[in-house]
Computed example of a mutant assay.
Amino acid sequence: AGYTPLMLACANRHHKATRLLIKLGSDVKIRNQEGATALMLSSASDDVTAVKTLVNAGADLDVMDCHEQTALMEASVRGGHSVVRALVESGADTNLRDSRGRTALHLAILHGHYAVA
């Protein structure tokens, strides 16, 4: 499916491995067969530590996967307030729309995530 060791480390919340792989030169912009990046996988698992590490390493905040979802949209669907905040503060585009015209805010509301952190 095109998962890299960095993607697997991020998806499984292995912070030491994530930092080591980046230090050793892992490309934070590589995408798997569905177009997902390590940042998207970290966002989906609500892992703010990995998200900040990847952003600091130059991860693309606004890349879309094959479902036209960004890391911010993924975090909004899951209700990951700390990840949403970290992505927005890092400059993620809040106006991007998926194939149905929905922004991250639309997706958060649609999935019942109303709280303001």
Results as ranks from 00 to 15, higher is better:
2 G>I: 01
4 T>H: 02
6 L>M: 08
6 L>I: 06
8 L>C: 04
10 C>F: 05
10 C>A: 15
11 A>F: 05
15 H>K: 12
18 T>W: 07
19 R>V: 05
20 L>E: 06
20 L>Y: 00
21 L>R: 00
22 I>C: 10
25 G>Y: 01
26 S>C: 10
27 D>Y: 06
29 K>T: 11
31 R>L: 00
32 N>H: 05
33 Q>N: 13
33 Q>W: 07
37 T>G: 01
38 A>M: 01
38 A>R: 00
41 L>I: 04
42 S>V: 02
46 D>Y: 00
46 D>W: 01
49 T>A: 13
51 V>S: 06
51 V>L: 02
55 V>M: 05
55 V>F: 04
56 N>W: 03
57 A>N: 07
58 G>T: 07
61 L>D: 07
63 V>W: 04
63 V>K: 08
63 V>G: 08
64 M>P: 08
66 C>T: 09
69 Q>C: 06
69 Q>K: 11
70 T>G: 06
71 A>R: 05
74 E>H: 10
74 E>P: 00
74 E>R: 15
75 A>R: 11
76 S>M: 01
78 R>D: 13
78 R>L: 12
79 G>K: 05
82 S>E: 15
82 S>C: 13
85 R>N: 14
85 R>F: 12
87 L>A: 12
88 V>G: 05
90 S>K: 09
91 G>W: 14
91 G>K: 13
91 G>Y: 10
91 G>N: 12
93 D>E: 11
95 N>A: 13
95 N>Y: 08
97 R>I: 11
98 D>W: 11
99 S>P: 01
101 G>W: 09
103 T>Q: 07
106 H>W: 11
107 L>P: 06
107 L>W: 11
108 A>V: 02
108 A>C: 04
108 A>S: 11
110 L>C: 09
112 G>I: 00
113 H>Q: 05
113 H>A: 08
115 A>L: 13
116 V>S: 14
116 V>N: 11
116 V>Y: 11
116 V>T: 12
